[in-house]
């Protein structure tokens, strides 16, 4: 059967694709642990943990997260392992990654 039609309440993307992922690992987001699967982008791992926001804007300090999902809009910028302005939707999550919410341009440390 090429296209299984699973119509139960337990449908998930992983079940749809018949995913048998490698072992999960941990990254941290603003200090708290987040589970990630091998191959997932940082944005995907955050979405899976119900996190939609990991940046505040430069002018109005408004919350933002992933929008275009393909690296074109730059709304998903995050600080990863101390480096600001990384596109979370493109960057694969790696064990132990330290992801922090980015405030503004992420370079506040430079002017202190």
């Amino acid at each position: 059967m090429r296209r299984p039609r699973i119509r139960t309440a337990g449908r998930t993307p992983a079940a749809l694709a018949g995913a048998v992922p490698g072992p999960a690992f941990e990254i941290t987001f603003d200090g708290r642990p987040v589970r990630a699967l091998p191959g997932q982008s940082i944005a995907a791992a955050l979405w899976a943990a119900s996190v939609l926001t990991w940046r505040t804007t430069r002018v109005n300090g408004r919350p933002r997260g992933a929008f275009c999902g393909i690296g074109s809009c730059f709304d998903c910028l995050a600080t990863v392992n101390g480096q600001p302005n990384r596109r979370a939707c493109l960057l694969p999550a790696r064990p132990g990654d330290v992801v922090t919410s980015q405030e503004g341009d992420g370079h506040a440390g430079l002017v202190r």
């Binding site: 191959g39 995907a44 791992a45 979405w47 926001t53 997260g65 999902g69 393909i70």
Partner: peptide, 24 residues
């Protein structure tokens, strides 16, 4: 449209296809 939870339709599709995740 800038509120978190508003995502590109193609973006949601891309994240689903590559990361097997849904935004909500």
């Amino acid at each position: 449209w800038t509120l978190p939870g508003v995502v590109g339709a193609a973006g949601a599709q891309a994240m689903l296809k590559s990361g097997l995740v849904l935004p909500g």
